[in-house]
């Protein structure tokens, strides 16, 4: 911690927080969103959907950065995120 230099504009850096939306019945359980979310927000759930697939479950919602990758990798248009808030950055992460 002591060897981390505090950026002079730290108070201006805003970190987006996303809210995840999932339409479970559209999911075909390909696992792309779980694999490619850069912040390990999603996990494969044990639960079966109506169609018999394992949809993702939002295991770590607070880690979502609203990067939009799950939206673009989902072939079923089943998952996406929206901006919930922007929080101030802190060097403690």
């Amino acid at each position: 911690m002591s060897n981390v230099r505090k950026p002079y504009d730290l108070s201006e850096i805003k970190i987006p927080r996303g809210e995840i939306h999932l339409i479970k019945d559209r999911c075909k359980g390909c696992g792309f969103c779980v694999e490619y979310c850069p912040n390990n927000v999603l996990e494969v759930s044990d639960e079966f959907s109506e169609k018999g697939y394992h949809p993702p479950v939002v295991a770590n919602p607070e880690r979502c950065l609203n990067c939009g990758l799950c939206e673009i990798v989902c072939p079923e248009f089943a998952i996406w995120s929206t901006l919930k808030e922007e929080v101030e950055a802190s060097i403690e992460g």
Binding site: E19, H21, L22, I23, K24, E50, V58, E71, A78, W80
Partner: peptide, 15 residues
């Protein structure tokens, strides 16, 4: 998390 129930999909995917 906002989860849509079957039969009443109010949410719209951005695409």
């Amino acid at each position: 998390m906002a989860m849509a129930e079957k039969g009443k999909v109010e949410e719209k995917h951005p695409m």
